[in-house]
Structure formats: structure tokens, C-alpha cells
Design a protein around this nucleic acid. Structure first.
Lengths: 140, 140
DNA sequence: TTCATAAGGTTACTTTTTGTAACTTACTCT
DNA sequence: AGAGTAAGTTACAAAAAGTAACCTTATGAA
């Protein structure tokens, strides 16, 4: 039993070595694409935007704003631009009045949402544990 | 071929429905534990701290600071406190002079790091694509 | 014809979060 | 007595995020 956990720890460390081991830790973030890309894609607001798009497939600006509860116009529009630039979603504007704009995932974005979903499922499963830990810690 | 992708999209949306579908989107973030827990654990600095701990198993404050390149004392100590409170890592202080403090993952933290690692592997695989997208977008 | 409305933002201004760098503590070694 | 060391903390500056008012363009009602 113990060794199963230990072996898992070792496997994990090996993968991390593959990822970080060859990188000189003195490198600034600009030279680490993983950090760069990750900081955009796994930002809290970006995550919520992408997940809701994964759910609805197509959403307009104001609907998105409604579902990504608490986001401001400013941040929503800024994140949508960046996520579009990075290729996760596409924007389609119809020249009607008032203007209609539809956001949806690209195929690339869809694959990312699937990964993201796994993480979110972990969160869903484990958040009670975390909240319990937090409470226990509060008493110290 | 098309239908495979389509079916995947539908499966994803179904999972998302399970996660978000029953939540009234008008709920503030305080009432959504998933958002709450996730905003701590998948913060950029937290992620890096946990991954490096997954790699080294035990790290002292100043070593962590060295590997989590660019983090400030202030933010590092703040994140370590929160991650400890949430149960991802443990702090062990030795009453020597100068003081020695060792940080390591809890077993719970270890399971999270494994999930996180999958996401990071995705990033590693796909960051070239994102950088390419970004460049293409820049030309528009 | 003037006015209200609507979607999808943008802008100016305030508040919060981060970053920077100097300082603290407590004991040991010179 | 003074320097050095690890693990932080603190005061102040810079950057990011939140807030709320405003813009655009055209349609339909008054």
C-alpha cells in the first residue's frame, strides 16, 4: 500500500523532471512558454468562460456575462480577446442592429475544455475536503 | 469522423451540466465551493509552488523562491499559508538558528499535483500551437 | 421628428492586489 | 561588539480589477 503511493510520487516527479528538469530555473517567465500560455488559459475568469462555452456551445456577450457570474464588461471583453488570439474561441459578429456577436469554442478550445473539465471534476469531488481542512486550520 | 468530435462535445456538455447545470447562475461566487477552492489552487503561483514540491518532495523557503522564479517573499509566504490551510502542503519548522523550515506536499496535495500535472503536460504539448495562433492573430 | 431602446462594448476613475526593497528576529561564529 | 543567516514582515509604489457612465447604430413608437 505504502509503496503504491511512493511509486506514484516517483512517477510524478519523473514527469516533472521532464517538464522542468531541463529548464534552468533562473529563466525568466518570458522564456517559459508553459508558464506564459498557462497564465492566460487557466486564469480564473478564462476558465469559467471556456467551461460555459463548453456547456452552451454558442453564447453572446451578455449571456456570457450572466453565466460567468461577477465578471465585469471590461474584464470579459479583455479575456475574450486574449482567448480568441490564443485560439481557444472564435468570435462571429452579425451586422444587425443592435449588433449581435456570437462566441464559441474552436476545436482546439474544445480539447482544452476537456482537460479543464477533468480538473474541475477533481475540484467538485474534493472541495468539501478543502473546506473542512480550512475550517480545522482556522481553529489553530 | 465528424460524429466522433460531436459526440465528445455532447459528453463534455453533459458533464458540465452535472457540474453547473443545477447551479443557479445568479449565485455569487461565495456560494460556489468549486470556484472558491479552484481560485486558490489553480492560481498561477500556487500551481508553480505545488509542481516544484511534487518534483523535490521537500523544499525550504529560499529554495522554493529560487525555483518558483519571479515570486516575491510576500506572495510566496502568503500562498504557502493558504495552501497549508487548504491542506495541500505541510510546514515543518526546526528551532535551529537560523531557523529552518521545510515545506512538503500532503498526501492530498500529492493527488492534486497529479491532476495538475496532466494539465501542465497538455500545456507543454500545446503551447507551440498557442504561440503560433497568437502570432497569426497579431498580423490581423 | 424626436426620443427610447438594445447589444456589445469602451472609458475614466476607484479599489484591490502585487511587486520592491528595506527591515526584523534570534542565535552563532569571529 | 559586529557580521551573518533563514524565514519571513512591513511600508510604499505599480499594476490589475471593479464600477458605473457613456458610445454607436439603427429601428420603431410617440
Amino acid at each position: 500500500m505504502e509503496t503504491v503511493v511512493e511509486n506514484q510520487k516517483i512517477r510524478t516527479a519523473k514527469k516533472l523532471e521532464k517538464m522542468f528538469g531541463h529548464i534552468d530555473y533562473k529563466n525568466p517567465p518570458e522564456l517559459c512558454p508553459v508558464r506564459d500560455v498557462m497564465s492566460v488559459a487557466s486564469d480564473q475568469w478564462s476558465t469559467l468562460i471556456l467551461l460555459w462555452l463548453g456547456f452552451f456551445h454558442v453564447l453572446r456577450f451578455n449571456k456570457l456575462k450572466k453565466y460567468v457570474y461577477g465578471i465585469s464588461n471590461k474584464v470579459l471583453s479583455q479575456r475574450l480577446k486574449v482567448l480568441e488570439a490564443d485560439g481557444y474561441l472564435k468570435r462571429k459578429a452579425y451586422k444587425e442592429v443592435p449588433i449581435r456577436v456570437e462566441y464559441s469554442l474552436t476545436e482546439f478550445g474544445q480539447t482544452y475544455v476537456e482537460k479543464l473539465l477533468e480538473l474541475t471534476e477533481w475540484m467538485q469531488t474534493n472541495s468539501p475536503k478543502v473546506l473542512a481542512n480550512r475550517e480545522k486550520y482556522g481553529l489553530l
